[in-house]
Design a binder for these strands. Structure first.
Lengths: 130, 130
DNA sequence: CCTGAATAAGAATTCAAC
DNA sequence: GTTGAATTCTTATTCAGG
């Protein structure tokens, strides 16, 4: 259950500006995780989350380090440089990258086109790694 | 005076493992900055410091920039929790994730199994996103 | 503005229990 | 190994005052 909760926490702090453990706790409970603040505190420690300042000057839990936009631009240029071709047929998108770049491309797609990469399609997603 | 104090704080947290504002306060006083915890709290906010985990598993104040190990653990637990199935046939590996998790899974695979994900196969890599 | 004193608010840990 | 209840510890803020 713990891993599942951890995943949910990461989801939640990504989606909302959560500035206290109690607030996170409330969201977790809405999601069916019936735990207490003590557990949330431990989860935060294990996930190495930090309380930073959001752009509005409010505190907010987030994953450490990168501000995202930083990452995003970094990978964006990587993406542009390492993709060989992009093709679409029906509901399938095929992205070919240069050797050794697949991992970076994957992250780049997330950074550059999150809505296409994961957000807008229905059903399961499948990765084929050939 | 505030600027000097800020500079000193950055120096101190770089040099020592400081895990509470009170401890930082003590160091500051030794350095001739006679302030209180309230001020330290404000300084930390202005400097955007965060309380992270040091390598020893203790909390520690530090400047934001973490590198990857953070990402890695973040995605690792996500991976563990959002993958529905993993199958292998011939030279094809199929990873199915829960809806909305594909992006995270992708990064998790990089974090957890970089060698399988990108490093060991020859030729081009192809992502199919269905 | 910047700060301290006091307080409220928040978070980590202890102690048991499972 | 994981958790909750209660506690202690820590930190943010309020409310003056400089």
């Amino acid at each position: 259950m713990k891993t599942r909760r951890h995943a949910k926490i990461l989801e939640l702090i990504k989606e909302y500006d959560i500035d206290t453990q109690d607030e996170l706790l409330r969201f977790l409970r809405e999601s069916g995780f019936d735990v207490t603040q003590a557990t949330v505190s431990r989860d935060i420690k294990e996930l190495r989350l930090v309380k930073t300042l959001s752009r509005t000057g409010k505190y907010k839990y987030s994953t450490g380090g990168d501000t995202g936009s930083n990452m995003s631009s970094k990978f964006y240029s990587l993406f542009a440089d390492s993709v060989v071709s992009v093709e679409a047929a029906q509901n399938i998108v095929v992205v070919k990258s240069m050797t050794g770049m697949a991992q970076a491309v994957c992250a780049a797609m997330d950074a550059a086109y999150p809505q296409h990469f994961v957000g807008t399609l229905a059903g399961e997603y499948t990765f084929f790694i050939v």
